[in-house]
Design a binder for these strands. Sequence first.
DNA 1: GTCTATACCCCGATAGAC
DNA 2: GTCTATCGGGGTATAGAC
Lengths: 254, 254
Amino acid sequence: MNSANDGSRTGGGTSGTLRGARERARSEITAAIKDEARTQLAAEGAAKLSLRAVARELGMVSSALYRYFPSRDELLTALIVDAYDSVGAAAEGAAGPADADPVERWTAVCTAVRSWALAHPHEYALIYGSPVPGYAAPQTTIAPASRVGLTLITVARDAHRGPGVAPPPLAAELRPEAERMAAGLAADLPPALVASLVAAWSQVFGLISFELFGQFTKIVEDRDTFFAQSVARIGRDAGLAPAGSAGVLHREYA
Amino acid sequence: MNSANDGSRTGGGTSGTLRGARERARSEITAAIKDEARTQLAAEGAAKLSLRAVARELGMVSSALYRYFPSRDELLTALIVDAYDSVGAAAEGAAGPADADPVERWTAVCTAVRSWALAHPHEYALIYGSPVPGYAAPQTTIAPASRVGLTLITVARDAHRGPGVAPPPLAAELRPEAERMAAGLAADLPPALVASLVAAWSQVFGLISFELFGQFTKIVEDRDTFFAQSVARIGRDAGLAPAGSAGVLHREYA
DNA sequence: GTCTATACCCCGATAGAC
DNA sequence: GTCTATCGGGGTATAGAC
């Protein structure tokens, strides 16, 4: 992943411009390879991603690709990191100002993630679907993978600073685990809130995965509305709304 | 999938016993093929399931397999149907008596699904994970696929017959879709309840998928407790508990 | 219903010339 | 850094003998 070594042998003291040009060409080709790989991801899936097919489509010879990615798994890792960064950026961009309504912020972030998923279903499957057999994600994927979760925690933190927002109930059996989670994720937040958030976060991805992976076929039709309402309720129940605000809805329709 | 045609040519009027033996042998071999295929599913994933490898491992020659499954996709379909039936049976078996506590029944069914998933991760991935590229599930998978959902609906129906269990709030925007869902899934239940149930159902699978697919690595450790508590809350929030019962918990820790 | 043989494809990875 | 050539695998599916 570090291209600094490549130009140093010939470009050492002769020409900074040349080295710059080479690095530019290199990064362009790298980008083209990843783009084509993403196309293949859509057609054949991650398990069958093949360097040869990518090379063929780019008019290269397979061995040339090894100058850019030392193995198939490294290419896969690059795609995974890109995907996490892409959805993470979408989530961060949707979070909005810290003083906005927490449930609306929560809903906006989750909706952004869903929109990203609908626009990039195969990349979504790559990072949130079944693991690729025989592939083990390296440590480098951990940081980008956490961006969405951190965004949601930020929303919760801002909400918790506001008035009247109480953490949700926490069962006694869950307290030790909740404290462990809070210590690792957001030591400044109440453990009950952190535990609720992690559950809520995974529940939102359950909604998205079911929609994307076809489990809602013939069951849910107006999926935009269904998602928006479900996610808002998850957010409220997780402790982002001032206590009692859900009751308003309840009174309306009881 | 229909084996009646195979023995009829030679066994027509001569020997019912012979035909019985042949069909028995056939079903045993069919089972052996599926078992070996499941083993390969675990090792290589559904996308790379190959008839040749299955045949090799069984000491057969690849072309012999075509007498049992006309194509790779038919074998895959058989595995999918088996998996849905397997998890469906586990769910149904855990539902317990109709007069038990609804939230406990809900939790028992969801826990059974999770246990099944942990015991059969690759079959879970096959049916609830990323779709297999290039494979389209035929209509025959629909009925087995609905068994878990129907079990949860049954639990909700029994709960709704009980005293004091009110459907959860339903936002006005969601009412048309909720009525559509209710019409297709459980016309005798309130639309608000059906919509909540579908959302809750997908949220439970979000928890299971995140755990199974590695998203809880280094985040959730005591997963049994985390799942049990999260699922119980989902069930209560979906309208399986008498109104106000969640408040008990709330008062305990507020 | 199992066998051999075959047609015709695919892959990851490396060696060594240029 | 790209090329050809190569090693040593893999696959689906069918034809036709037995």
